Amino acid sequence: MNLRQNAEYMNALVLEVRGVPGSGMDSIAEFKNPSLLGVGTDWQDEIYRRGFTQSHQLGFSGGTEKTQFYFSGGYLNQEGTLIKTGFKRITLRANIDHQATKWLKTGITANLSRTNQQIGLSDGFDAVTSTVLYNSPVTPVKDVFGNYISTNVIGGSTFGNPNNPVALAMLRDVSNQSSKAFGTVYADLNIIDGLTIRSEGNFDFNLSSDRAFQPYVQNAETKAVILSPARLREQRNNSLYWAIKNYANYNKAFGKHNIAATVGHEAQRSKYDFINANRDNLVLNIPNLNAGDAGDTQGIGAGAATWSMESVFARLNYNYDNRYAISGTIRRDGSSNFGPGHKWGTFPAVSASWTASNESFLKDNKYVNYLKLRFGYGEVGGQDA
Protein backbone atom coordinates (compact mmCIF):
# COMPACT_ATOMS: atom_id res chain seq x y z
CA MET A 1 0.00 0.00 0.00
CA ASN A 2 1.11 3.60 -0.58
CA LEU A 3 1.46 6.32 2.05
CA ARG A 4 -2.14 7.53 1.77
CA GLN A 5 -3.52 4.01 2.05
CA ASN A 6 -1.18 3.31 4.96
CA ALA A 7 -2.48 6.35 6.82
CA GLU A 8 -6.11 5.33 6.22
CA TYR A 9 -5.33 1.84 7.53
CA MET A 10 -3.63 3.18 10.67
CA ASN A 11 -6.50 5.62 11.32
CA ALA A 12 -8.96 2.74 11.05
CA LEU A 13 -6.96 0.78 13.65
CA VAL A 14 -7.01 3.79 15.97
CA LEU A 15 -10.80 3.97 15.70
CA GLU A 16 -11.08 0.33 16.67
CA VAL A 17 -8.78 0.77 19.66
CA ARG A 18 -10.64 3.90 20.81
CA GLY A 19 -13.80 1.83 20.91
CA VAL A 20 -12.37 0.13 23.97
CA PRO A 21 -13.50 1.93 27.17
CA GLY A 22 -10.71 3.93 28.71
CA SER A 23 -8.56 4.08 25.59
CA GLY A 24 -7.23 7.51 24.76
CA MET A 25 -5.30 6.60 21.62
CA ASP A 26 -5.33 9.20 18.88
CA SER A 27 -4.18 9.23 15.26
CA ILE A 28 -0.79 10.65 14.38
CA ALA A 29 -1.33 14.30 13.52
CA GLU A 30 0.43 14.02 10.17
CA PHE A 31 -1.90 11.13 9.20
CA LYS A 32 -5.25 12.55 10.30
CA ASN A 33 -6.09 13.79 6.82
CA PRO A 34 -4.78 11.15 4.35
CA SER A 35 -6.05 13.13 1.34
CA LEU A 36 -3.23 15.62 1.95
CA LEU A 37 -0.58 12.92 1.65
CA GLY A 38 1.22 11.71 -1.42
CA VAL A 39 2.04 8.13 -2.39
CA GLY A 40 5.20 7.97 -0.28
CA THR A 41 8.00 5.54 -1.09
CA ASP A 42 7.25 2.65 -3.44
CA TRP A 43 10.02 0.31 -2.33
CA GLN A 44 9.31 -2.24 -5.04
CA ASP A 45 9.72 0.47 -7.65
CA GLU A 46 12.93 1.62 -5.98
CA ILE A 47 14.73 -1.73 -6.25
CA TYR A 48 13.28 -3.08 -9.50
CA ARG A 49 13.71 -1.74 -13.00
CA ARG A 50 13.13 -2.80 -16.56
CA GLY A 51 15.94 -5.06 -17.71
CA PHE A 52 17.42 -5.08 -21.18
CA THR A 53 19.72 -7.23 -23.27
CA GLN A 54 21.99 -6.32 -26.14
CA SER A 55 23.89 -8.89 -28.13
CA HIS A 56 26.38 -8.34 -30.95
CA GLN A 57 28.13 -10.98 -33.04
CA LEU A 58 30.59 -10.74 -35.91
CA GLY A 59 31.93 -13.69 -37.86
CA PHE A 60 33.72 -14.34 -41.10
CA SER A 61 34.84 -17.44 -42.94
CA GLY A 62 36.86 -18.35 -45.96
CA GLY A 63 39.58 -20.60 -47.21
CA THR A 64 41.09 -22.44 -50.14
CA GLU A 65 40.65 -25.90 -51.56
CA LYS A 66 42.81 -27.33 -48.78
CA THR A 67 42.22 -24.92 -45.91
CA GLN A 68 39.01 -23.59 -44.40
CA PHE A 69 38.68 -21.20 -41.49
CA TYR A 70 36.02 -19.47 -39.42
CA PHE A 71 36.52 -16.69 -36.86
CA SER A 72 33.88 -14.99 -34.76
CA GLY A 73 33.51 -12.64 -31.83
CA GLY A 74 30.57 -11.74 -29.65
CA TYR A 75 29.52 -9.29 -26.97
CA LEU A 76 26.57 -9.73 -24.60
CA ASN A 77 25.34 -7.15 -22.10
CA GLN A 78 22.39 -7.88 -19.83
CA GLU A 79 21.05 -5.44 -17.26
CA GLY A 80 19.06 -7.19 -14.53
CA THR A 81 15.63 -6.26 -13.26
CA LEU A 82 17.13 -5.77 -9.78
CA ILE A 83 19.16 -2.58 -9.44
CA LYS A 84 22.95 -2.97 -9.67
CA THR A 85 22.77 -6.41 -11.26
CA GLY A 86 24.01 -7.36 -14.69
CA PHE A 87 26.01 -9.73 -16.81
CA LYS A 88 28.60 -9.04 -19.51
CA ARG A 89 30.38 -11.54 -21.72
CA ILE A 90 32.98 -11.33 -24.49
CA THR A 91 33.58 -14.42 -26.64
CA LEU A 92 36.08 -15.34 -29.36
CA ARG A 93 36.03 -18.47 -31.51
CA ALA A 94 38.34 -19.89 -34.16
CA ASN A 95 38.01 -22.99 -36.36
CA ILE A 96 40.72 -24.04 -38.81
CA ASP A 97 40.75 -27.24 -40.91
CA HIS A 98 43.61 -28.13 -43.26
CA GLN A 99 43.93 -31.02 -45.71
CA ALA A 100 47.70 -31.48 -45.50
CA THR A 101 47.83 -34.50 -47.84
CA LYS A 102 45.41 -36.93 -49.42
CA TRP A 103 45.64 -39.08 -46.33
CA LEU A 104 46.12 -36.47 -43.55
CA LYS A 105 43.71 -33.82 -42.33
CA THR A 106 44.37 -31.61 -39.29
CA GLY A 107 42.41 -28.97 -37.47
CA ILE A 108 41.97 -26.87 -34.37
CA THR A 109 38.98 -25.36 -32.59
CA ALA A 110 39.50 -22.76 -29.86
CA ASN A 111 36.95 -20.87 -27.75
CA LEU A 112 37.75 -18.02 -25.37
CA SER A 113 35.37 -16.12 -23.12
CA ARG A 114 35.46 -13.51 -20.39
CA THR A 115 32.44 -12.84 -18.17
CA ASN A 116 31.68 -10.25 -15.53
CA GLN A 117 28.58 -10.66 -13.39
CA GLN A 118 27.25 -8.17 -10.87
CA ILE A 119 25.18 -10.09 -8.35
CA GLY A 120 22.31 -8.93 -6.16
CA LEU A 121 21.82 -10.91 -2.98
CA SER A 122 18.32 -12.41 -3.00
CA ASP A 123 18.55 -15.00 -0.24
CA GLY A 124 18.80 -14.40 3.49
CA PHE A 125 17.26 -12.17 6.13
CA ASP A 126 19.16 -9.09 4.92
CA ALA A 127 18.79 -9.70 1.19
CA VAL A 128 17.43 -6.89 -0.92
CA THR A 129 14.36 -8.79 -2.07
CA SER A 130 13.56 -9.84 1.52
CA THR A 131 13.93 -6.51 3.34
CA VAL A 132 11.83 -4.68 0.75
CA LEU A 133 8.79 -6.67 1.90
CA TYR A 134 9.04 -5.27 5.43
CA ASN A 135 9.56 -1.60 4.77
CA SER A 136 7.13 1.28 5.00
CA PRO A 137 6.00 3.90 2.47
CA VAL A 138 6.42 6.42 5.31
CA THR A 139 10.21 6.07 5.15
CA PRO A 140 12.08 7.74 2.27
CA VAL A 141 15.15 6.21 0.65
CA LYS A 142 17.36 9.19 1.58
CA ASP A 143 17.08 12.26 3.79
CA VAL A 144 17.16 15.87 2.58
CA PHE A 145 20.96 15.81 2.71
CA GLY A 146 21.19 12.85 0.33
CA ASN A 147 22.16 10.32 3.01
CA TYR A 148 20.64 6.88 3.17
CA ILE A 149 18.34 6.41 6.18
CA SER A 150 17.00 3.34 7.92
CA THR A 151 13.93 4.32 9.94
CA ASN A 152 11.81 7.45 10.15
CA VAL A 153 10.16 8.89 13.27
CA ILE A 154 6.82 10.67 12.84
CA GLY A 155 4.65 11.73 15.75
CA GLY A 156 6.79 9.76 18.15
CA SER A 157 6.32 6.51 16.18
CA THR A 158 9.12 4.75 14.31
CA PHE A 159 8.49 3.54 10.75
CA GLY A 160 10.59 1.55 8.34
CA ASN A 161 13.18 -1.21 8.46
CA PRO A 162 16.70 -0.90 9.90
CA ASN A 163 17.88 -2.43 6.60
CA ASN A 164 17.38 0.00 3.73
CA PRO A 165 16.98 -2.25 0.65
CA VAL A 166 18.24 0.40 -1.79
CA ALA A 167 21.33 0.97 0.34
CA LEU A 168 21.90 -2.79 0.54
CA ALA A 169 21.76 -3.05 -3.25
CA MET A 170 23.77 0.02 -4.19
CA LEU A 171 26.48 0.04 -1.50
CA ARG A 172 27.39 -3.66 -1.53
CA ASP A 173 29.64 -4.94 -4.31
CA VAL A 174 29.14 -8.65 -5.07
CA SER A 175 30.66 -9.83 -8.33
CA ASN A 176 32.10 -12.77 -10.23
CA GLN A 177 34.67 -12.66 -13.03
CA SER A 178 35.48 -15.72 -15.08
CA SER A 179 37.92 -16.49 -17.90
CA LYS A 180 37.42 -19.70 -19.84
CA ALA A 181 39.27 -21.40 -22.68
CA PHE A 182 38.46 -24.73 -24.28
CA GLY A 183 39.10 -26.40 -27.58
CA THR A 184 40.24 -29.37 -29.63
CA VAL A 185 43.22 -30.26 -31.79
CA TYR A 186 42.90 -33.26 -34.10
CA ALA A 187 44.48 -35.23 -36.92
CA ASP A 188 42.64 -37.69 -39.21
CA LEU A 189 44.53 -40.31 -41.21
CA ASN A 190 43.03 -42.33 -44.06
CA ILE A 191 45.77 -44.83 -44.86
CA ILE A 192 43.88 -47.58 -46.69
CA ASP A 193 40.36 -48.00 -47.91
CA GLY A 194 38.01 -48.51 -44.97
CA LEU A 195 40.55 -47.65 -42.26
CA THR A 196 40.58 -44.27 -40.49
CA ILE A 197 42.76 -43.24 -37.56
CA ARG A 198 42.04 -40.19 -35.42
CA SER A 199 44.17 -38.53 -32.78
CA GLU A 200 42.52 -35.82 -30.72
CA GLY A 201 43.43 -33.59 -27.81
CA ASN A 202 40.91 -31.63 -25.74
CA PHE A 203 41.43 -28.97 -23.11
CA ASP A 204 39.19 -26.95 -20.82
CA PHE A 205 40.61 -24.25 -18.54
CA ASN A 206 38.63 -22.04 -16.20
CA LEU A 207 39.80 -19.26 -13.89
CA SER A 208 37.21 -17.48 -11.76
CA SER A 209 37.21 -14.88 -9.02
CA ASP A 210 34.42 -14.09 -6.54
CA ARG A 211 34.30 -10.93 -4.47
CA ALA A 212 31.83 -9.61 -1.90
CA PHE A 213 32.49 -6.22 -0.28
CA GLN A 214 30.32 -4.35 2.21
CA PRO A 215 31.39 -0.93 3.51
CA TYR A 216 30.60 0.53 6.91
CA VAL A 217 28.08 3.32 6.27
CA GLN A 218 26.69 5.77 8.80
CA ASN A 219 24.22 8.60 8.25
CA ALA A 220 26.29 11.76 8.71
CA GLU A 221 23.40 13.69 10.28
CA THR A 222 21.63 11.17 12.53
CA LYS A 223 24.67 8.90 13.12
CA ALA A 224 22.39 5.93 12.43
CA VAL A 225 24.27 2.88 11.11
CA ILE A 226 23.13 1.94 7.60
CA LEU A 227 25.55 -0.93 6.92
CA SER A 228 27.85 -2.74 9.32
CA PRO A 229 30.46 -4.12 9.62
CA ALA A 230 32.88 -3.30 6.83
CA ARG A 231 33.76 -6.71 5.42
CA LEU A 232 35.38 -8.36 2.42
CA ARG A 233 35.30 -11.92 1.14
CA GLU A 234 37.29 -13.15 -1.85
CA GLN A 235 37.68 -16.54 -3.52
CA ARG A 236 39.81 -17.80 -6.41
CA ASN A 237 39.05 -20.97 -8.36
CA ASN A 238 41.21 -22.75 -10.94
CA SER A 239 40.31 -25.82 -12.96
CA LEU A 240 42.05 -27.60 -15.81
CA TYR A 241 40.87 -30.62 -17.76
CA TRP A 242 42.66 -32.32 -20.63
CA ALA A 243 42.11 -35.49 -22.62
CA ILE A 244 44.03 -37.34 -25.32
CA LYS A 245 42.14 -39.78 -27.52
CA ASN A 246 43.45 -42.15 -30.19
CA TYR A 247 41.25 -44.59 -32.02
CA ALA A 248 41.05 -46.48 -35.29
CA ASN A 249 37.91 -47.43 -37.19
CA TYR A 250 37.65 -50.08 -39.88
CA ASN A 251 34.49 -50.43 -41.97
CA LYS A 252 34.21 -52.86 -44.87
CA ALA A 253 31.46 -54.57 -46.82
CA PHE A 254 31.91 -57.94 -48.56
CA GLY A 255 28.75 -58.66 -50.48
CA LYS A 256 26.08 -59.18 -47.82
CA HIS A 257 28.63 -59.17 -45.04
CA ASN A 258 29.43 -55.92 -43.18
CA ILE A 259 32.19 -55.53 -40.63
CA ALA A 260 32.86 -52.52 -38.37
CA ALA A 261 35.69 -52.56 -35.86
CA THR A 262 37.07 -49.96 -33.47
CA VAL A 263 40.07 -49.95 -31.15
CA GLY A 264 41.12 -47.01 -29.05
CA HIS A 265 42.94 -45.49 -26.13
CA GLU A 266 41.96 -42.52 -23.95
CA ALA A 267 43.73 -40.65 -21.17
CA GLN A 268 42.20 -37.77 -19.24
CA ARG A 269 42.95 -35.72 -16.17
CA SER A 270 41.19 -33.02 -14.19
CA LYS A 271 42.58 -30.69 -11.52
CA TYR A 272 40.72 -28.17 -9.38
CA ASP A 273 41.83 -25.90 -6.55
CA PHE A 274 40.46 -22.91 -4.68
CA ILE A 275 41.35 -20.52 -1.90
CA ASN A 276 39.10 -18.08 -0.06
CA ALA A 277 39.55 -15.53 2.69
CA ASN A 278 37.42 -13.03 4.55
CA ARG A 279 37.97 -10.18 6.98
CA ASP A 280 35.66 -7.87 8.94
CA ASN A 281 36.04 -4.37 10.38
CA LEU A 282 38.06 -3.03 7.47
CA VAL A 283 39.96 0.16 8.25
CA LEU A 284 38.51 3.22 6.45
CA ASN A 285 36.41 0.88 4.29
CA ILE A 286 39.51 -0.10 2.33
CA PRO A 287 38.52 -3.16 0.24
CA ASN A 288 41.69 -5.09 1.02
CA LEU A 289 42.16 -8.22 3.11
CA ASN A 290 45.16 -6.61 4.81
CA ALA A 291 43.08 -3.69 6.08
CA GLY A 292 41.00 -5.39 8.79
CA ASP A 293 41.11 -6.76 12.30
CA ALA A 294 42.72 -10.10 12.98
CA GLY A 295 41.44 -12.76 15.34
CA ASP A 296 37.87 -13.97 15.10
CA THR A 297 37.00 -11.47 12.37
CA GLN A 298 39.08 -13.18 9.72
CA GLY A 299 39.11 -16.59 8.06
CA ILE A 300 40.81 -18.52 5.31
CA GLY A 301 40.05 -21.76 3.54
CA ALA A 302 41.43 -23.75 0.64
CA GLY A 303 40.95 -27.04 -1.14
CA ALA A 304 42.08 -29.06 -4.13
CA ALA A 305 41.03 -32.17 -6.01
CA THR A 306 42.54 -34.20 -8.84
CA TRP A 307 41.39 -37.24 -10.75
CA SER A 308 42.74 -39.09 -13.77
CA MET A 309 41.54 -41.94 -15.92
CA GLU A 310 43.00 -44.14 -18.66
CA SER A 311 41.00 -46.46 -20.91
CA VAL A 312 41.55 -48.96 -23.69
CA PHE A 313 38.63 -50.37 -25.62
CA ALA A 314 37.69 -52.47 -28.64
CA ARG A 315 34.41 -53.07 -30.45
CA LEU A 316 33.47 -55.47 -33.28
CA ASN A 317 30.15 -55.42 -35.16
CA TYR A 318 29.14 -57.94 -37.78
CA ASN A 319 25.99 -57.73 -39.88
CA TYR A 320 24.69 -60.13 -42.48
CA ASP A 321 22.24 -58.86 -45.07
CA ASN A 322 20.78 -56.33 -42.60
CA ARG A 323 19.06 -59.26 -40.87
CA TYR A 324 21.45 -60.88 -38.43
CA ALA A 325 23.93 -58.98 -36.32
CA ILE A 326 26.32 -59.66 -33.49
CA SER A 327 28.33 -57.15 -31.49
CA GLY A 328 31.06 -57.42 -28.91
CA THR A 329 32.68 -54.71 -26.83
CA ILE A 330 35.34 -54.74 -24.16
CA ARG A 331 36.94 -51.86 -22.34
CA ARG A 332 39.40 -51.65 -19.50
CA ASP A 333 39.40 -48.51 -17.37
CA GLY A 334 41.85 -47.36 -14.75
CA SER A 335 40.82 -44.51 -12.47
CA SER A 336 42.41 -42.69 -9.57
CA ASN A 337 38.97 -42.71 -7.94
CA PHE A 338 38.84 -46.50 -7.76
CA GLY A 339 39.65 -48.04 -4.40
CA PRO A 340 43.07 -49.39 -3.39
CA GLY A 341 43.82 -52.69 -5.08
CA HIS A 342 41.03 -52.11 -7.59
CA LYS A 343 42.40 -49.32 -9.74
CA TRP A 344 41.46 -51.14 -12.94
CA GLY A 345 38.16 -52.56 -14.07
CA THR A 346 37.19 -54.62 -17.13
CA PHE A 347 33.74 -54.19 -18.65
CA PRO A 348 32.64 -56.56 -21.44
CA ALA A 349 29.40 -56.53 -23.44
CA VAL A 350 27.93 -58.78 -26.14
CA SER A 351 24.69 -58.70 -28.08
CA ALA A 352 22.90 -60.44 -30.94
CA SER A 353 19.93 -59.26 -32.95
CA TRP A 354 17.55 -60.40 -35.64
CA THR A 355 15.71 -57.88 -37.79
CA ALA A 356 12.68 -59.99 -38.62
CA SER A 357 10.99 -57.28 -40.65
CA ASN A 358 13.75 -57.63 -43.28
CA GLU A 359 12.89 -61.29 -43.85
CA SER A 360 11.05 -62.09 -47.05
CA PHE A 361 7.98 -63.39 -45.23
CA LEU A 362 7.47 -60.01 -43.45
CA LYS A 363 8.63 -57.49 -46.01
CA ASP A 364 5.19 -56.92 -47.48
CA ASN A 365 3.26 -57.32 -44.24
CA LYS A 366 0.91 -54.36 -43.88
CA TYR A 367 0.66 -54.76 -40.09
CA VAL A 368 4.36 -54.86 -39.27
CA ASN A 369 6.66 -52.07 -40.45
CA TYR A 370 9.65 -52.85 -38.27
CA LEU A 371 10.39 -55.76 -35.97
CA LYS A 372 13.72 -56.42 -34.30
CA LEU A 373 14.66 -58.86 -31.56
CA ARG A 374 17.79 -58.15 -29.58
CA PHE A 375 19.53 -59.99 -26.76
CA GLY A 376 22.50 -58.63 -24.88
CA TYR A 377 24.64 -58.82 -21.78
CA GLY A 378 27.05 -56.28 -20.41
CA GLU A 379 28.83 -54.90 -17.38
CA VAL A 380 29.22 -51.22 -16.55
CA GLY A 381 31.00 -49.24 -13.88
CA GLY A 382 31.41 -45.69 -12.67
CA GLN A 383 34.36 -43.94 -11.08
CA ASP A 384 32.12 -41.69 -8.98
CA ALA A 385 30.09 -44.51 -7.43
Results as ranks from 00 to 15, higher is better:
Q218D: 04
I244P: 00
V144K: 09
S136N: 13
S270Q: 08
G51Q: 13
I197M: 13
M170Y: 02
P34H: 10
G183Y: 08
I47K: 04
P162L: 03
N290W: 00
S27Y: 01
A187W: 04
T297N: 14
R269I: 10
L371C: 05
E310N: 07
G299R: 09
H265K: 06
D204V: 01
T91W: 08
P140E: 06
V312G: 12
F375K: 01
P340C: 00
I226S: 03
G255W: 08
I300R: 11
R323C: 07
I326N: 04
T41Q: 13
M309I: 02
Y48E: 08
T129Q: 07
Y367N: 13
V20R: 07
Y148L: 07
D126P: 00
N190S: 12
F31H: 05
R332A: 09
N317Q: 09
D296T: 12
I226M: 02
V174D: 10
Q118T: 11
A267L: 08
T106L: 15
L133H: 08
R236D: 15
L133M: 12
I192P: 03
S357L: 03
G59D: 09
G334R: 09
T151M: 06
D296N: 13
G295M: 05
K105P: 00
V17C: 03
Q298L: 05
F182L: 08
R50M: 15
V138F: 14
G339A: 12
L133I: 04
L240V: 12
Q68D: 08
D97N: 14
H265T: 01
D123N: 15
A212L: 07
S199R: 00
P21S: 15
N164Q: 05
A277C: 05
R49C: 09
R211F: 10
G301N: 12
A352V: 15
S239Y: 06
S270H: 11
L189W: 06
G378S: 14
Y324K: 02
S178H: 01
R211Q: 11
M170C: 00
D321Y: 10
I330L: 14
L171G: 04
N176D: 12
E16R: 12
S336G: 07
G299M: 07
S353N: 10
N116E: 15
P34Q: 02
K363P: 02
D280Q: 10
L316D: 10
W344P: 01
A325I: 01
G334P: 00
I47E: 03
N238C: 01
I286D: 00
S311C: 07
G22E: 13
I119R: 13
M10L: 15
L37W: 03
K271C: 04
D273S: 14
K105T: 13
T262C: 06
R50F: 15
T139E: 04
G38A: 03
G328D: 07
W103L: 10
S157Q: 11
Q268D: 10
V144S: 13
